[in-house]
Amino acid sequence: MNVVLDMIGQYGYIALYVLLALGIVGIPVPDELLLTFIGYLTSIGIFNFPAAVTVSLLGAMTGMLVSYWLGRKLGKPVLWKYGKWIKLTPKRLKKAETWFHRYGPWTISFGYFIPGIRHLTCYLSGVSGMSQRKYLLFAGAGALFWCLFFITLGYFAGYHFDFI
Rank of each mutant, 00 (worst) to 15 (best):
F156V: 08
T36E: 02
A15S: 09
L16W: 08
M1I: 12
L70M: 13
A52G: 09
Y123R: 07
I8E: 03
D162I: 07
F49K: 01
P50D: 04
E32K: 01
W146M: 00
G158S: 11
P50C: 00
V18C: 00
L35N: 02
L79V: 10
L16T: 06
F149V: 05
W80L: 14
I38Y: 01
L74N: 01
Y112Q: 02
M130A: 11
L65N: 13
T98R: 15
S67P: 02
W69V: 13
G12W: 06
K87T: 00
L74G: 10
T121M: 14
V3Y: 10
F138D: 09
P77A: 11
L74Y: 02
L19W: 11
G75M: 09
L19F: 11
F49W: 08
G45Y: 11
F138L: 09
V29K: 09
P50E: 01
L88Y: 07
L58E: 01
F145N: 00
D162M: 08
G104D: 08
A60F: 07
T54L: 14
G140I: 08
F149H: 00
D31A: 06
G111Q: 10
G23Y: 09
G9F: 02
G126F: 12
L74H: 00
F163N: 04
A141K: 00
A60D: 06
L19I: 10
Y82K: 08
Y103L: 09
R118G: 06
L153Y: 02
G83M: 04
L153M: 12
K95E: 15
T36Q: 04
Q132W: 13
G116N: 01
P28M: 05
Y155F: 15
Y11V: 11
V78I: 12
R133M: 08
H119Y: 04
T89A: 03
I114S: 03
S43T: 12
T54V: 12
Y135W: 14
G142D: 04
L120Q: 05
P115H: 11
S56M: 07
M64S: 08
V78F: 12
F156W: 08
D31V: 11
G63T: 03
N2T: 15
F163H: 05
R72V: 07
S109A: 15
